[in-house]
């Protein structure tokens, strides 16, 4: 480096401010250890590696779609859209209609929502607004535990405890007093749509209540105090100050619970009865999309049979995806930024 150039710094700019002169020989410059160039190659390799991992997620979802779409082609070409309207599921004669499964999935999930939503919101309201402080942690932990129990254990419990209970006490009672609705008639097997709905409800309560809790906590304290200052009772404060502002988020939690219920397999398979029929009564056995795949996939002989099952899987995937995305958007609208403007 030419020292001369430095000694007379030709400074431009509005205000050259001179300091001391640069020494002819900077004594310490040699001390700089001129080793490698700073590992830029390693940085690039590392970046490529983690990018690869991130892209793997995209690839997996792409793969899921590809597998489902390509392997259901056979069935799609054979039945077209009628596949989803046909009521006849007859592997022996290669006739496949998925309507009973769609019906079973929808009805069991809706039943689960009807049972779960009030309870889950009640639990969330209690935990965030009413519970003494010391009880909040344990309550949250317990609901979390409920979420950690594997589906197969719920199913096991349902077979040996819930179903006998329904058969002996609940169903006779329902048939006697509510039989006129047509929803509760026929022989009380225990096993059937009602059992599936109840076990699903138990399984989705933790999701709905933890998300409701989350969005309720996101509602600012000022909202609460503002309503309380008007002389509202605690319930009025919760209703007007909290629930109204958290509405969209709670809806998101409910829909997320729906997504889980739609895709739930094992517990439902173990108690729903697995019969591809559409019946009005909730006592009757049914079948869901996830259950039919679970039961018949590994025994499916014949390409069309397998393809039909995969088409059921594709439909299930698309429905849960739409439901989950909707739920995410609703939850985000509350927890990130201002409460959603759902009303003027």
């Amino acid at each position: 480096m030419a020292n001369g150039a430095l000694r007379a710094p030709g400074m431009t700019g509005p205000k050259p401010v001179a300091g001391p002169q640069l020494a002819g020989q900077t004594s310490w410059a040699s001390a700089i250890r001129l080793k490698d160039a700073g590992g830029q190659l390693a940085d690039t390799v590392f970046y490529a590696l983690v990018l690869f991992c991130a892209l793997a997620i995209l690839a997996v979802v792409g793969l899921v779609l590809y597998e489902l779409v390509s392997k259901s082609q056979l069935s799609w070409h054979a039945f077209g859209f009628k596949f989803f309207l046909g009521q006849n599921w007859d592997p022996v004669n290669d006739q496949f209609g998925a309507l009973p499964f769609i019906y079973g999935t929808v009805v069991s999930s809706l039943l689960a929502l009807v049972l779960a939503v009030p309870l889950a919101i009640g639990v969330a309201v209690f935990t965030t607004e009413m519970s003494p402080r010391w009880l909040r942690g344990p309550l949250a932990f317990t609901t979390e535990l409920l979420a950690a129990i594997p589906s197969v254990i719920y199913g096991l419990w349902a077979i040996f405890v819930l179903v006998p209970l329904l058969r002996q006490y609940v169903q006779p009672w329902l048939a006697r007093y509510l039989g006129w609705t047509g929803l509760f008639e026929g022989p009380p097997y225990g096993i059937g749509m009602l059992a599936a709905g109840i076990i699903l409800a138990i399984m989705i309560i933790p999701i709905i209540s933890s998300i409701t809790r989350e969005v309720m906590t996101a509602v600012s304290q000022q909202q609460r105090e503002g309503v309380l200052a008007l002389g509202a009772t605690r319930w009025e404060m919760i209703r007007m100050g909290v629930l109204r502002n958290a509405r969209a988020g709670i809806m998101g939690g409910v829909i997320l619970g729906l997504g889980r219920a739609l895709g739930e397999t094992m517990a439902v398979t173990m108690v729903i009865g697995n019969r591809p029929e559409i019946a009005r009564s909730l006592f009757a056995p049914g079948y869901t999309m996830a259950s039919v795949i679970a039961n018949e996939f590994s025994e499916a002989t014949g390409d069309l049979y397998l393809s039909a099952l995969i088409e059921v899987g594709l439909a299930l995937f698309l429905v849960t995806m739409v439901v989950n995305i909707l739920a995410q958007l609703l939850v985000w609208s509350v927890t990130r930024g201002a409460p959603a403007r759902t009303h003027a």
Binding site: V60, G263, A294, L316, F317
Partner: peptide, 8 residues
């Protein structure tokens, strides 16, 4: 991906 049913 997190929401894809496990059976799928």
């Amino acid at each position: 991906l997190n929401g894809v049913p496990s059976i799928v």
